Computed example of a mutant assay.
Amino acid sequence: MRLFRSGGVLGIADDTLEFALEASDETHPNEYMGFLRGTDARDLGLDRDGTVITDVLVIPGTTSSPESATVRENLIPNGSRAVGSIHSHPNGVLRPSNQDLTTFHAGSVHVIVGAPYERDCWRAFDPDGEPTELDVLDVDLPDDDAFFDFDQSDIDAELRE
């Protein structure tokens, strides 16, 4: 599977954005935090080079409050296909804070969603915190059952690394 081609991140799947908005609303008044995972556009039937954001990966042990969310980076699985991050601002502000900018180093796109978590309550940013366009794409998401095909021994092995 070719994940990172010259086309970069083309957009976010409509269902993925909807999931993130709903999860942020359910987490409110605390911040929501996750990593964005991508799938090659050609694997989704698109005749374009690049990656489409198709998943939000929530890391176990993530803590959140109304002011921040903290991820235990040592629990991020290898090969997670991360292309960036997503988090909510319960106060509704759709621009990165200074703290946000320090976390934007990993990945090429970072999404902030804000209260009241409606379809127009989100913005995308590049690693420098500058606004960037991110199309919402109507694609059929792949069944990624293999991602959930693990047991306790797999979890124990991952934690030992």
Results as ranks from 00 to 15, higher is better:
Val109Ile: 15
Thr63Phe: 11
Arg37Ala: 15
Phe19Ala: 08
Ala23Cys: 08
Thr39His: 04
Gly107Asn: 08
Asn30Cys: 11
Thr70Asp: 03
Val52Gly: 05
Phe104Ser: 01
Thr54Ser: 14
Ser24Phe: 00
Leu36Val: 10
Ala69Gly: 09
Ala82Leu: 15
Gly107Tyr: 09
Gly107Ser: 10
Leu57His: 07
Leu101Thr: 04
Thr27His: 07
Arg95Ser: 13
Phe104Ile: 05
Val71Pro: 02
Ala106Ser: 12
Thr51Phe: 07
Pro96Cys: 03
Glu22Cys: 08
Leu36Ile: 08
Thr63His: 11
Ala82Ser: 14
Ser68Val: 02
Asp55Ala: 07
Gly45Ile: 08
Val56Ala: 06
Gly34Arg: 01
His105Gln: 14
Leu57Asp: 06
Leu57Ser: 07
Glu22Gln: 12
Phe19Tyr: 15
Asn74Trp: 14
Leu44Lys: 06
Ser24Tyr: 01
His105Lys: 15
Ser108Trp: 11
Val56Pro: 00
Thr102Val: 11
Glu67Lys: 07
His28Gln: 06
Ala82Gly: 10
Asp25Pro: 00
Thr62Pro: 11
Pro90Asp: 07
Leu101Val: 03
Arg81Gln: 13
Asp100Val: 00
Ile76Thr: 03
Gly34Tyr: 03
Thr54Asp: 05
Leu57Cys: 06
Gly38Lys: 04
Ser65Gly: 07
Arg81Asn: 15
Phe35Ile: 04
Thr63Tyr: 12
Ile59Phe: 00
Phe104Leu: 05
Gly34Leu: 05
Ser97Arg: 07
Val83Trp: 10
Arg37Met: 14
Gly45Ser: 10
Ile53Cys: 06
Ser108Thr: 12
Ser80Gly: 11
Ser88Tyr: 02
Ser97Pro: 08
Asp47Glu: 15
Val109Gln: 02
Val111Glu: 05
Phe104His: 04
Val58Gln: 08
Phe19Ser: 10
Ala106Asp: 12
Ala106Val: 14
Leu46Glu: 05
Pro96Arg: 09
Arg72Gln: 13
Pro96Ile: 02
Met33Phe: 15
Thr27Trp: 02
Gly45Glu: 09
Asn98Met: 11
His89Trp: 03
Gly50Asn: 03
Val83Ile: 15
Gly38Tyr: 09
Ser85Glu: 06
Thr102Leu: 09
Asn91Ser: 13
Glu67Phe: 07
Val56Arg: 05
Val93Tyr: 04
Ala20Gly: 06
Gly61Lys: 00
Leu75Ala: 06
Glu67Asp: 15
Ala41Met: 10
Glu31Asp: 02
Gln99Trp: 01
Asn98Tyr: 10
